[in-house]
Write a protein that binds this DNA or RNA. Structure first.
Lengths: 191, 191
DNA sequence: CGAGGCCTTGACCGCGGTCAATGCCCGTGG
DNA sequence: CCACGGGCATTGACCGCGGTCAAGGCCTCG
C-alpha cells in the first residue's frame, strides 16, 4: 500500500495506520497527471483537494500589482495544497506545474473527518504542518534584514535543486529580488 | 476550569476535552509571573515548556551580525513557545518580556504524550499550528517584494495594537527596516 | 540637574529596482 | 538546412529607496 509506505518513511516504521483509514484513503485518493503549464489551483477559488507530488515540479504564486510573486517550489515527495482551502476558504495562491507532473490527489473533507476520528492521522497531519511552519520560519529569516547576495547563497547551500530545475526569473521572485539583480549576483560569484 | 474555557473560546462550546486530559493539565500547568526585561527562553537552549500569555507582552528575536532581529510580538491570549523545542531541539530564538507578564506554563513532553493519546488534544494542537502557519504566510507577503511604507501601513491596518505597545525600534526590526526609515515614514504619513 | 533611553532629523551613498537593448538557445516552418 | 520568432538571461545606464553614521531633541528617572 503506497500511502502507507509513504507515511512510514516520514514517521518511522512503528507508525500503524488503522485499516479503516487505509480503506478510506485508497478510495479517496486518485492518481492524476498534469502537463507542464497546467494550473492545478487558481488564486481566489476554493479547491477541496490537496496533493502528494510524486513526479515533477510545482510553483505557488500570487498576483500583486500585476506581478507574479512566488511563494515556494515543490518537487518529488512533497505535499502541495492551500492552507486556506484546509479551512474551507478560497486559495490565496495559484499552483502551476513547471514540469509534467504526477500527483496523488486527496479529498480534504474526507481527510479532515478522518483526522477527527483517527488519532494517528491527526498526528501525521500535525507533523506535516509543523514541518511547513518551520519552512516558513526559515524563509522569513532569509527575507527579513538580509541582502540579495545572502538570499541567493542560502539557496545555493540549502536548496540547490532549485538552481537546476527552476528558471532564474522564478528564482528571483522567490528571493524577493529582480531578475536583473539575480543575474548580476551570479556573475559576481563566478568571477 | 480555566484551560477548558480557554480552548472552548477557540473551538466552540461543543468541544469536549477528556477528563483525563484536564486532570493531567491542571497538574502540569503552572501560572508564572515575569518582570519586564526578563528572558523566558534563550536562543540556543532547549526549553521544554510553552506558554499561554494571560497578561503582558513578549517579543521573539534572534541575533544576526550582532543585531537583534525580531520575529513577532505576542500579547494577551496568545500562545508563546519555540517550535524547535517542540521537536526536542534548541530554540533558535530568545523570548523577552516587554512588559510584566503572567503566563500559564505547559510541559511540552506531557502535552506531546497526551497528544498521542487524546484525539481532541491532537486536533486542538493542529488548530493552533495551522493558525501559526497562516500568520507566517501573511508575514512573508509583507516582506517579499514590498517596500517600507507598505509594510508599515499593513501594521497600522492589521496589527494596530503594536503601535501602542511596542517601541518603534522593535517595530522597525519586525518590519525589516531601520529605525530611521520608520521614523521618516511616520512623518510622511502625518503630513 | 545630569544621565540614559528612545526617537527624530540631516547628510551621504550604495544596493537594488526600472527601462531598454542585446545575446543566446531552441522549436517551428519555409 | 537555414531563417525567423519567442522565451529567457545578461548587460548597461540611470536613479531613488532605504541603510549608515552622526548629531540633536525630548522624556523619564535617579
Amino acid at each position: 500500500m503506497e500511502i502507507n509506505d509513504l507515511i512510514k518513511n516520514y514517521l518511522g516504521n512503528d507508525t500503524v495506520l488503522s485499516p479503516s483509514f487505509l480503506a478510506e484513503m485508497s478510495e479517496a485518493a486518485v492518481v492524476l497527471s498534469f502537463k507542464k503549464g497546467e494550473i492545478i489551483i487558481k488564486e481566489g477559488e476554493f479547491h477541496p483537494y490537496f496533493y502528494f507530488l510524486q513526479q515533477g515540479g510545482i510553483r505557488s504564486y500570487y498576483l500583486a500589482n500585476g506581478l507574479e510573486i512566488i511563494n515556494w517550489f515543490a518537487f518529488e515527495n512533497e505535499w502541495v495544497g492551500s492552507i486556506q482551502s484546509t479551512q474551507g476558504a478560497a486559495s490565496r495562491d495559484s499552483f502551476e506545474c513547471m514540469e509534467d507532473c504526477k500527483c496523488i490527489r486527496f479529498d480534504i473533507q474526507k481527510f479532515k473527518s478522518l483526522q477527527k476520528e483517527d488519532i494517528v492521522v491527526a498526528n501525521v497531519v500535525n507533523f506535516f504542518i509543523e514541518e511547513f511552519a518551520i519552512f516558513l520560519e526559515d524563509r522569513l529569516r532569509q527575507l527579513q534584514h538580509r541582502e540579495a547576495m545572502d538570499r541567493y547563497l542560502y539557496v545555493v547551500e540549502h536548496e540547490p535543486e532549485y538552481l537546476q530545475r527552476v528558471p532564474l526569473t522564478y528564482l528571483a521572485s522567490y528571493l524577493g529580488i529582480s531578475r536583473e539583480t539575480l543575474s548580476r549576483i551570479r556573475r559576481r560569484i563566478i568571477s
